[in-house]
Simulated assay, not measured.
Amino acid sequence: MRLPRRLAELAVAAWDREELGGIGDESREEYDVRDDAAELALIGPAISERGVWDGEEVVVELDVVQVAAALRAAR
């Protein structure tokens, strides 16, 4: 899969981020944002481990779960 550099960098950063503390009360919008971030984070390790940078894009082989996460993150 080819991903824009910015999206790939966000995925890696989302995966590397440490969560300190638990999740408190949140609105539906806050839940949706957190859920989107989690989807994006799922492709971070693949990009870090086997992504090949090609200019402003990264090319990475993803399994079916990661492809679905990438598609949802790109929306």
Rank of each mutant, 00 (worst) to 15 (best):
R6N: 11
R72I: 05
I23Q: 08
A11M: 07
D16A: 11
E56H: 06
A11S: 06
V58I: 06
D54I: 02
R28W: 12
R72F: 10
A68N: 14
R50S: 08
R5L: 15
V65N: 09
A41D: 00
L20V: 15
A68F: 15
G55F: 05
D63W: 10
P4G: 14
V64I: 13
A14N: 01
D32T: 13
D36E: 06
W53Q: 07
R72W: 01
S48E: 10
A73W: 00
R50Y: 12
E61D: 15
A70G: 09
A38D: 01
V33S: 09
V64F: 13
S27M: 10
I47E: 04
E30T: 12
A74Q: 09
I47Y: 01
D16N: 10
G51P: 08
G44D: 00
A68H: 15
E61M: 10
G21C: 09
L20C: 12
Y31L: 15
E56M: 09
R50C: 05
A74M: 08
Q66E: 15
P45C: 06
V33E: 08
S48P: 03
E39L: 02
R50F: 14
L7P: 02
R72H: 11
G51T: 08
A8G: 07
E19R: 14
W15N: 04
E39V: 00
R6Q: 14
V64K: 09
V12T: 03
D16T: 10
A8W: 01
L42Y: 00
V64N: 08
E19G: 08
R2T: 02
E39W: 01
I43R: 04
I23F: 11
D36A: 12
E19K: 03
E18R: 13
A73G: 14
E26L: 15
G55A: 07
A14F: 00
D25V: 12
L71T: 15
A37D: 02
E61F: 03
V64T: 13
L3V: 15
Q66G: 07
A11F: 01
